[in-house]
Design a protein around this nucleic acid. Structure first.
Lengths: 249, 249
DNA sequence: GTCTATAACGAGATAGAC
DNA sequence: GTCTATCTCGTTATAGAC
């Protein structure tokens, strides 16, 4: 039964049957913590099971009881990182949804979630780089990562869906060349979402992370100084492209 | 005189005085080519002077005649990459400017430059990752990179400046909180550019690379299929945020 | 002056015998 | 799990060819 669980999965408290399992969870967490330290110091490409083991006072072969390979450890770190941004986004979304029903709520939620993503990224730049930066050479993400990777996007979809239902959206018409792709996209990511919303939403998703990446990766050095106010304004304008803000002009 | 030139700088043809200099240029190019191969195979973090030398049939210490350190070789690759995207952007800008005077030219130039950046990135994903992806651990970019790094941005500024002068721009008002930053930004990057344009322009710059990065780094896998038409539409909408497209709705 | 080659350093990874 | 012998790396000093 338990053998079927992947080594890196965090088991729910109810699954803890005794000291054995608890120790396993603690060691797994210690390995990931140490690996994250090395991620910050040396980068994902140089993540080495041996170095992690050495730092923990273990022998490298012992690590293989917890992570069958270096790539599995990397996958665990990637899943954790996606889950961490995803949870930050979901939490800020819940907080911003508190006073529901008020007009303009869609925009407020959008900005809140964007800021949560940015805050998390600035607080965890190396984990951010792991998931939204350059791909790690020789590593290909397994299927396990796609669910966690989608969490932030799901929050954005929910915001726009709610606003679409409750507030109505002001959107530019969908160009003909994009119609087939937009329809496929909508059916794929959120059945029931209007194609004219789906395409701009995916674009806005990428653009949001463009803003965050430029700041985290240093492209704004000596360019943008008042970064938070700049970011808030940029994502507010970005919200316009998904219909969350009335169009002026 | 020539001694003041950094080893990795490509000297103009007029500076070639004889076989010596020609050989030096050729060896320098060979080193960079081999380094680029390793960049693709192993990533920037694992770029190794010794491996480059081995592959070229040289001894590692000989490389120090051309690049004083590993970081200098990295810097050369980074500068080359920035220059390559920058030149692609400038070339496509010139091409799109060919039939001047026609209305809507600003938007056409904007889309052309964006597509040129995307094309270059898709053709050179590893060099793109080097400059717009995760920072290389332990490496800090010297001042030499800031000029080349600004080239694409300069093209975008030129497009918006021209359009501002020739076509007029339709822009949302500048919020008060952003005014000081926008004024500083405008004075910094393009004296004479209206602050209400400068801030959205820098944001659009980051968002453009967000779209490109998501595609190059695989975030659109299993999400966006018709990527070129999607990209064109997204950057067209993006042009709206810098006033290059009349506002509808 | 300009280049390449040899040798070495200290540090770290790696493979295998035990 | 431990130890060791053998790799890698960036970098420097030095000697000698052109």
């Amino acid at each position: 039964m338990f053998g079927a669980l992947r080594a890196w999965q965090t088991e729910p408290m109810s699954a803890i049957r005794g000291a054995r399992e608890r120790a396993r969870i603690e060691v797994t967490a210690a390995i990931k913590d140490e690996a994250r330290k090395q991620l910050a110091a040396e980068g994902a490409a140089k993540l080495s099971l041996r170095a992690v083991a050495r730092e923990l006072g273990m022998v490298s072969s012992a690590l293989y009881r917890y992570f069958p390979s270096r790539d599995d450890l990397l996958t665990a770190l990637i899943v954790d990182a996606y889950d961490a941004v995803g949870e930050a986004a979901e939490r800020s979304h819940r907080a911003a949804t508190g006073a529901a029903g008020a007009p303009g709520t869609g925009l407020a939620r959008w900005v809140a979630v964007a800021c949560a993503v940015r805050d998390w990224a600035l607080a965890h730049p190396h984990e951010y780089a792991l998931i939204y930066g350059s791909p790690v050479p020789g590593y290909t993400a397994p299927q396990d990562t796609v669910g966690p990777a989608a969490r932030v996007g799901m929050v954005l979809i929910a915001i726009v869906e709610d606003a679409h239902r409750d507030e109505g959206l002001a959107l530019p018409p969908l160009p003909d060349e994009l119609r087939p792709e937009a329809e496929r996209l909508a059916a794929d990511i959120a059945p029931g979402l209007a194609p004219a919303v789906a395409a701009p939403l995916v674009a806005a998703w990428a653009q949001l992370f463009g803003l965050v990446s430029f700041e985290v990766f240093g492209q704004f050095n000596r360019v943008v100084e008042a970064r938070e106010v700049f970011f808030r304004q940029a994502v507010t304008e970005l919200a316009r492209t998904v219909g969350l803000l009335g169009r002026r002009g």
